[in-house]
Amino acid sequence: MTPEETKAFEEKIHAFVGRENGPPKRGNDDVNEAMIRHWAEVMGDELGTYTDAEYAAGTGKGGLIAPPAMLQAWSMEGYPMAENPAQDIQRQLHNVFDAHGFTGVLGTNTSTEFFRDLKPGDQVTAHCIIDTISEQKATGRGIGYFIETLTTYTDQNGEEVGKQVFRVLKFIPADSNDAADSSTEDDSPSVPTRITSPRGHDNSWWWKACDEGKILIQRCTSCQTLRHPPRPMCGECQSIEWDSIESTLDGEVYSFTTLHYPKIPGYQYPNTVGVIQLSEGTRLVANIVDIDYETIKIGMKVKGSVEQVDEKTMLPVFRPE
């Protein structure tokens, strides 16, 4: 968008600020035991005050209550959202965003205050207004705007039972910025896997053996010196002739560290990595697994094996002997 177009767009969206989303919306169902039980099962709520009327009567609550986090659920639109959502003011606002390329939507924050516990029979009505729209932001998801709605929930007596600020990001999905390259064939991306090594002339033989479950150590055929990581020439005698031996993966911890942050997709944290002194004399950097990292000591004997660590990757891993 040109600066003028952006200005016109922002005027359009800011006209929504302060407007009511629609008439107050009373929940289709009053607070009831069945929906509470359904919720409690999924969320793992273990309190009898949610699901056991007899028990609940004897607690300080004096009877069943709904899990507080359910508050928003009582007045949700339900199944029509999937097929034919109501064209309320918020939807109209989103349509303006969509028409300008801000098609992505993501709930980013919710903050709810609860003024009293809800009990079966209570009737929840939501009063929602478009409260604020942020300046344009560059987010990790893409360029976008945060929209905050403020919802006040009242009961059958018109008294406030809770208040919620809900913030969504409407953004231009990063992919649509390079639309020319959007025809990817793989329509089922999978869970991220580890970042693997690029393979070239000097290292692909090593990684290929690793794929097959073997850890090799390069050996100069002229002076027999072992070397790792592999290099095309021997630093001792300058020979370019070499073969390799297979490591037994017996070794000890020469040094190690445990990574906590940042968390890179495809890896599990905490992630312990060691420099392993192999019995053959060379060193190898690899994960140390199945041990509390606080108990690892330099000099500890370890034994390695080559294992499949994710859907795509074979790697050496070491365990204490």
Binding site: R194, W207, T257, P262, I264, V273, A286, N287, I298
Partner: peptide, 29 residues
């Protein structure tokens, strides 16, 4: 030198802090 980093990326040893930590552990020892 992407190939050089290839010896460390698969295990996850790929941040400056982690490389320095490896020397640090040895130094403390």
């Amino acid at each position: 030198d992407a190939m050089h980093w290839g010896w460390y990326m698969p295990s996850g040893l790929m941040t400056p802090a982690s490389w320095v930590a490896m020397y640090t552990q040895r130094y403390m020892h």
